[in-house]
């Protein structure tokens, strides 16, 4: 945990994990980067467009028995809409992404690409075609989508800077069991995420965003 003053506006900013070197200042939206030399400014983050997500910074919940807190968000857009990826910091310092799209939620964790059968790795990173199937740990996954996505805005703490206008290639995989995976490619850099659909009820979240005129559910 490191708390410093924002080099741009002087507001206090906290870095909670060494593996999350990027942070958007809540006050002035400067993109800050933490390094051994201190905290520098890497640009300015865009304002997040209005949405009615029930999640917000500080929402807490449990996934597979492990407690997490939402500390960051990236909002992405593709040709047919936008979605949120909420960064969840777990008690052991690891992080996962709570995806929120079309009113549904999914939790994924980054996984080393070399844990995938090499036969399928190339397919996922070079030759992904919608409708093709890939075997992942013995489970058949179908490529549901493969296209360029655009970063609109971000907030909080992040493992990367996520500049607005950043374009990456994203490939989504789904299985019949509710499992999903995602491959994100930016030039030669490839990240692989593995997870499944979740419901808010199963995460038992607290500190949800209050939305005018709607009763927030209380999960016991």
């Amino acid at each position: 945990m490191l708390t410093v003053s924002c080099p741009n506006c002087g507001a206090p900013v906290t870095f909670r994990s060494a593996s999350l070197p990027n942070r958007v200042c809540d006050q002035c939206r400067s993109m800050l980067v933490r390094s051994d030399d201190g905290v520098g400014i890497a640009g300015v983050q865009a304002a997040l467009p209005f949405d009615v997500s029930p999640i917000r910074m500080g929402t807490r919940g449990r996934f597979d028995g492990r407690a997490f807190e939402v500390i960051g968000r990236v909002r992405w857009r593709w040709t047919d809409g936008s979605w949120n990826e909420w960064l969840c910091l777990f008690g052991d310092g690891s992080h996962g992404w709570l995806g929120e799209a079309m009113g549904q939620f999914m939790m994924t964790h980054e996984r080393a690409l070399d844990t995938i059968d090499p036969a399928w790795r190339l397919k996922l990173t070079r030759d992904a075609r919608v409708g093709d199937t890939v075997m992942l740990d013995g489970e058949e996954m179908t490529i549901a989508d493969s296209r360029e996505v655009l970063c609109i805005a971000a907030e909080g703490e992040l493992p990367f800077t996520a500049p607005p206008g950043w374009r990456i290639h994203s490939t989504d995989l789904r299985s019949g069991s509710g499992r999903l995976a995602n491959v994100q490619r930016d030039g030669s850099e490839v990240h692989f995420y593995d997870g499944r659909y979740v419901t808010l009820a199963e995460l038992k979240p607290t500190n949800l965003r209050a939305i005018e005129g709607w009763k927030a559910p209380v999960y016991g």
Partner: peptide, 17 residues
């Protein structure tokens, strides 16, 4: 910060136009 939010949650508007 989170605690303060819990005490008086800022209500986000539900709709836009």
């Amino acid at each position: 910060m989170a605690e303060a939010d819990t005490l008086s949650p800022p209500q986000a508007p539900a709709a836009t136009a």
